[in-house]
């Protein structure tokens, strides 16, 4: 296997929780708790999970908008976990981010031209003339007329704004883009336009994406592999087709069965979960999902290592007796020894 573009090992991002009169730290939100993954050049890794599972925090920690508490982020062979802000800046040429709400991530006081020129100015690339030409090329590439350059972001619809957000992200020809719910705020017919644009750009520029979303059909469509997160941890990671066809972890199965299918003739069995995702503040020890479904084996998982283990080639699941069939659990328990 070729060396990964990005590899994340045992990453933890915890936020302190303060309380009491003295505002002492009384706990921590374990937003990302021991997460490991890799992304190959030109690959899309989908990251799904419910709100509060830590998927956005993971994305932001990778581009170092958050400081990890432990673990390692290696980008193109360089450990960037502890890199200073000045060391990070040149890296941002290769690693960009697209946000969910383009109206909040684009400065309304700047014209589209100045938004799109900014990356070049920050990184000191090109002359004024060249930058002008590049901005026009960028707009053309994302399907906006060049007359858009002198308008402001609020003059555009949601889909067009997201195109501007994408244009800004690809301005410096990055290798990896972290996409945090890039199409969730868009209407169905506009969503497919933006997804197509992202697929085309990936082909042309060899981009890798970490595609974070909660819409499982969208994630499946754009991803090569998919990781499922639950309460700060990855519980299953596999090829996109395989994870939808043959999910092995109980949470993945429940999540997939909950997607409404746009076909009234589809007869499906739904696994209904009780309750909500538990709070990541001082989460239950052991299997968090086992705790939610009050699994009889939950007690046994409290002192066990539930790490992600390879069940079959390139199909990883958390070694959790509550969430796997007995045969699968026996297989991963054997593999992890």
């Amino acid at each position: 296997m070729e060396s990964p573009l990005l590899s994340v090992n045992g990453l933890k991002v915890h936020f302190p929780v303060h309380g009491g009169v003295l505002k002492r730290q009384i706990g921590a939100v374990r937003a990302v708790d021991d997460v490991s993954l890799t992304i190959a050049p030109g690959e899309t890794l989908g990251l799904v999970g419910e709100s509060g599972c830590g998927k956005s925090t993971l994305g932001k920690a990778i581009v170092r908008l958050y400081r990890p508490n432990a673990g390692q982020i290696v980008f193109e062979g360089r450990d960037i976990t502890r890199a200073s802000q000045s060391q990070i800046r040149p890296l941002r040429r290769d690693m960009q981010m697209i946000f969910q709400d383009p109206s909040e991530s684009l400065n309304a006081r700047h014209s589209v031209r100045s938004i799109l020129e900014e990356p070049y100015i920050i990184h000191n690339i090109g002359t004024k003339e060249e930058r002008r030409r590049w901005v026009n090329e960028l707009l053309d590439r994302v399907g906006l007329p060049s007359s858009s350059a002198d308008k402001y972001s609020f003059e555009f619809s949601g889909g067009q704004r997201q195109r501007i957000g994408i244009a800004r992200a690809i301005a410096l020809k990055p290798k990896l883009i972290i996409c945090d719910e890039p199409v969730s705020a868009l209407d169905v017919s506009v969503q497919s336009q933006v997804l197509n644009l992202m697929l085309e750009l990936q082909q042309e520029m060899g981009l890798a994406y970490l595609f974070i979303a909660h819409d499982l059909a969208v994630v499946k469509h754009i991803s090569d592999r998919v990781a499922v997160m639950y309460l700060g941890k990855i519980v299953e990671l596999a090829d996109a087709d395989e994870i939808y066809r043959d999910p092995r972890h109980a949470y993945t199965q429940a999540l997939l069965s909950a997607i409404p299918v746009a076909d009234p003739r589809a007869k499906k069995k739904r696994i209904l979960l009780e309750g909500d995702v538990p709070s990541p503040i001082n989460p239950p020890a052991g299997s968090a999902f086992g705790h939610r479904i009050s699994h009889p084996l939950y007690e046994q998982t409290m002192d066990k290592d539930l790490r992600l283990t390879e069940l079959s080639p390139d199909h990883f699941v958390a070694a959790d007796p509550c969430c796997l069939s007995p045969a699968d659990y026996a297989a991963v328990a054997k593999a992890s020894q």
Partner: peptide, 11 residues
């Protein structure tokens, strides 16, 4: 225009 779970991927 909606991706379905059985739409071929990355098309």
């Amino acid at each position: 225009s909606m991706p379905h779970l059985d739409t071929p991927r990355k098309t």
